[in-house]
Each structure stands twice: as structure tokens, then as C-alpha cells.
Amino acid sequence: MNTVLQAKGLCKTYVVNKRQNNVLKNIDLTVSEGDMVAVMGPSGSGKSTLLYCVSGMDRVTAGEVIFNGKETASLNDKELARVRLDEMGFIFQQMYMMKNLSVLDNIIFPAVKSKNNKETRAQTEERGRALMKRLGIEDVGSNDINEVSGGQLQRACICRSMINSPKIIFADEPTGALNRSSSDEVMNELLKLNNDGTTVMCVTHDPKVAAKCSRVLYLVDGSIVGEKVLGHFDSEEKSLRDRERELNGWLMEQGW
């Protein structure tokens, strides 16, 4: 398997009121193509910060982040933005979307902005509709974003993250604002994407969500203190329960 993302000695420090706060400490991490990695840990352990640093949304204080063979620290803001636009997808806990655009326009917006996209506007729109159909929200394309449910909106966010066929999708607690049913729907969609070959890195507090991932990293005080390899999920109920049980046991050992 090719390595998509690699972090070496990654450190992130914030200075607040002249006091240094080391949020991430010397993290080494490798994510291979097709992985579905969950990042877990107590609140304030640095999960989201790790996601932002490796995705180029935030600059690292020390260490290296190599994405798809490129050292992100060497890229300027414009180049980094282009990498995020063309090669990464993002899903957030809150279903952030642009309020002046319809659901479909929000989905195709990154593709319209991508210089790699040589399609006509109509072709891009068609591709957006196809993605929506794949995620079961094809009926809400022309709706305003206040006219759809939270689950539908998060699936629309997944569509947006997929529109430029990224190499990796970063998800920051993607089910955190959803009920169990919607949460399952969203995770199933992410699993489908992963099964189709897209790498996913996901921050979560929910063991049920993490149990569907192939690897689980456990962070405490800015350091990865443990890693559990669960292997790819075949989506059968029995296997999920086994994985949850296995993961919960491991999490207990980590101090969860």
C-alpha cells in the first residue's frame, strides 16, 4: 500500500498569554492508501489539532507532514490551498455550508473553483447530482440549506468533500451533531467511500464510529499513546459487535 500521509516528529505549540501550550508532542504517523483511521482520545488531547495540522489547515510548529510525497511546510498558503481543494476533502461536525447557495451549488462549489477541473458547469453539476444520488439526497439539490435535515446536510457535506475526487477525506467528528440513525447513515456512506478506495481520517468520540475504521489511534496530552488495528470492516452486524467489543476493551486499557 502506498503512503498517502506521513507525519514525523510533528509538534504544535500555542502561546497564550506568554505561556506555551504544547498541544501536539513529537507525533509520528503514517496513513496508507485505503486506510480508514479513527483518532480518539479525551477532550483536549489534541485530536482536532492533529487533523488540522496534517491536513494543512494549520501550520505545524515543528516536524514534517508529507502528503502525497509533498512536504506541506514547504508550500505557501496558495499552494497549500490548492492541495486542499484538489486532493483533500473535509467534513466537519457542524454542517458548515454557504448560506447563500443551494445544496447542489454548495456541493459543486469546490469543483467550480478547481483549476484542474476542465468540465463545463453543466457537466460538474451532473457529477454533483450523481454524487447526491449515490448518497440518497438527490431530491434536495435545489433546496436551501435550511430546508434539509441534519443527516441530509452532513451527507451533502460528504458529497462536497468528494466532488474533486480527493485522495483523502478528513472528518472532524462527522457524526457529533447527529442522532444515532443519521450517524449510522453518514458512517455507512464514509465506509462505502473507503471501500471504493478513498482514504479517510476521522476524529471521533464515538466507539461505534471508530469500530467501523481499520485503525484507531489513541491520543493523550498531544501524544499517540496507542494504536489498534481492526482491519477493514465488512459491514456485517456480527462483525461490528465483535469489533466494538474488541475496541472498547482496548480503550479501557488506554484509560478511556
Partner: peptide, 26 residues
Amino acid sequence: ERFKRKSLLRLGSSRLPSNVFMSIND
């Protein structure tokens, strides 16, 4: 409601450059 404003123009069916479209849409 999470948001209150309504989208009026359609990016997909517009031929305007994206920045111009976004500005007019705003």
C-alpha cells in the same frame, strides 16, 4: 433554523466566473 437566507441564483446554470457569481449572489 441554522440559516435564514435563501439562495436565489444557481451556480450550476451560471456562466459567470465563480468570484463574480458569488459576489452577485451575495
